[in-house]
Nucleic acid binder design. Structure first.
Length: 233
DNA sequence: AAAGGTTGCAACCGCATCGCA
DNA sequence: GTGCGATGCGGTTGCAACCTT
């Protein structure tokens, strides 16, 4: 057995983030255990995967949870228990880790409110209803389209697809090849998720076309601005 | 201003599950 | 059917930032 190479642990540096993002955007995700060495990272595949899934993925929404999201979490936790990944499937752009942390640090501490409490807002009951119908289907597929998706999503730049609905200044931009232009300022949420899955697809596919032009920018925090400096591939 | 306490969250660990040979 | 590597999941921990005294 060969000695395991030194594997770094702990907080990721912006340089490591940049390397991982650059690698994934260029080559896609093919094997988490193998890719760190090709990406020039002294991290375990597991650590890379976690970092990507919980932090670096372009479709992650960060910042404060909305009231609707909170209510969904509370309802689903009551229904499903601590099945965070299943709950995350109901909350597009939120990671299971985020939901778990949010539950453990905030929601769990709150006094329990009855499901039948009439003081619940109309939106709350709508959320509950939706969640219940999803629950009956039990399958996660397509459920994300039913919850908490804005009716219209603004596309501020003709060549950019942007998620703009974070309340806390979280701003994510994925620019697509110039040949793919979007002439409309607004798309329906349905189209939005179509675009989203289109954008995600190459990342998840083995044999991702290395030559595909992906311009990728992602700013999630003004203080953590490595994205701003991220190279354009 | 400094020290101690608290909070929030990124990241790790270990186990479960999946998929392939 | 079995073994093994890869991936997914949930619990837990460590620590930086924030708050209180």
């Amino acid at each position: 057995m060969g000695r395991q190479p030194y594997l770094k642990k702990g907080t990721w540096t912006s340089d490591e983030d940049r390397k991982l993002v650059a690698y994934v955007m260029r080559y896609g995700i093919w094997n988490w255990n193998e890719m760190p060495k090709f990406a020039g990272l002294q991290r375990s595949g597991k650590s890379c995967r976690l970092r990507w899934m919980n932090y670096l993925r372009p479709d992650i929404r960060r910042g404060n949870f909305t009231r609707e999201e909170e209510e969904t979490i509370i309802h689903m936790q009551k229904k499903l228990g601590n099945r965070w990944s299943a709950i995350a499937a109901r909350l597009p752009q939120r990671t299971d880790n985020d939901i778990k942390n949010y539950w453990n640090t905030r929601l769990k501490k709150r006094p329990v409110i009855s499901e039948n409490n009439n003081s619940a807002s109309a939106s709350a009951s709508a959320t509950t209803e939706t969640s219940s119908s999803i629950e009956e289907n039990s399958c996660d597929a397509d459920s994300s389209t039913l919850l908490n998706i804005p009716a219209m999503v603004e596309l501020p730049e003709p060549l950019a697809y942007t998620t703009t609905f974070s309340p806390s200044g979280c701003h994510q931009t994925v620019e697509v090849d110039n040949t793919c232009s979007m002439s409309e300022q607004f798309v329906s949420s349905e189209s939005y998720w179509g675009i989203q899955s289109f954008l995600e697809q190459p990342l998840m596919t083995q044999g991702f076309d290395c030559e595909a032009v992906w311009h990728y920018q992602h700013y999630y925090d003004p203080l953590d601005d490595f994205w701003v400096n991220l190279l354009v591939l």
